[in-house]
Design a protein around this nucleic acid. Structure first.
Lengths: 168, 168
DNA sequence: CCTAGCATGTAATACGTTACATGATTCA
DNA sequence: TGAATCATGTAACGTATTACATGCTAGG
């Protein structure tokens, strides 16, 4: 991920984290505690090169991919092994719904739906930044669309489950 | 989760793990390395009680909830704070699609779709066990339905993305 | 001048998996 | 009798978060 973000134009560790916050964090997150040590590790492995920023008044370290870094990035992007996992505590609580009264289950369903509605608002806000934030790249928008549609699907599913429970 | 599974009828650490494997593992997993130490911790906290199995030829430890355990379980089930997170490496690769040739992106989309189709087959196999495996509980089936429909949605999304890419 | 944001990092902690180790029992 | 499965556990390792620490600078 870090190699890719540098390749797309993120220059510093801080910059990488800022980008993650409005893009991949919903399906692939990373903290400063990972990013900075990892940048050093990548440099040690010869995949990135660092240099102090010449044009800036701030002291910050700029990173670029080396040819080896480009190669590693491309190999990962075309390689096998696509990890997928999710943890969903609301679904786990739903699994135990038989241990609750119907109104308690209903409250849980509603709470989860509302939290997804907030996420949807967040996605719409990011979307509203428009295409100029994308620097000509089209796939970040595609993954954002995935997120928007997925969250919308979740909202619909929970709304339907609420109706099922209330109705009969 | 462990309190809930004991409550639903899982008696031993092994039993808990077996149940997880065919139910919650897709949205909430746990390994033996977590389960056995956690059972001891729960007993130390007075939330569960253990006793050797009297009616079995095997040496195994049976667990039951204490009243304090029931209370803690109910408080968790009705309480706030529903963690949700997912890691999706295929989506991350899609995010970097601008760095790939169209046929490489297409191969990634197809691979992910196919892996979801396998998961769908797994879910259908679990579903085929029928209602007698549910011991009269209805919500485990409801979460399985969620999984089936979600995976189906994912398959459709990826199939559509493949068409978008191939067509225009 | 002062606050928000830029910028980099470490240490402690928590979380979770994997591999290993052991042994009994059921059933073909 | 031998393989699969029941059954319990630990140690090492890897991953990730959180809290903390530091200091600069741009802009109101």
């Amino acid at each position: 991920m870090i190699l890719g973000l540098i390749r797309l134009g993120a220059r510093t560790g801080y910059d990488i984290k800022q980008t993650i916050e409005v893009t991949t964090r919903f399906f692939w997150n990373a903290s400063y505690g990972q990013i900075y040590p990892e940048l050093r590790r990548l440099e040690g492995a010869g995949l990135v090169e660092s240099r102090p920023d010449p044009g800036s008044s701030r002291k910050r370290t700029l990173y670029d991919l080396t040819p080896a870094g480009e190669k590693t990035l491309h190999e990962w992007l075309t390689g096998p092994g696509d990890l997928f996992d999710m943890r969903d505590e609301a679904l786990l609580k739903l699994f135990f719904g038989d241990l609750l009264a119907p109104d308690e289950v209903l409250a849980n369903l509603r709470r989860r739906r509302e939290s997804f509605e907030e996420v949807l608002g967040l996605f719409r806000a990011i979307e509203a930044r428009g295409p100029e934030a994308q620097h000509g790249y089209v796939y970040p928008k595609k993954t954002l669309d995935f997120g928007t549609e997925l969250v919308q699907w979740m909202i619909d599913w929970y709304a339907q489950a609420e109706r099922d429970l209330a109705g009969g």
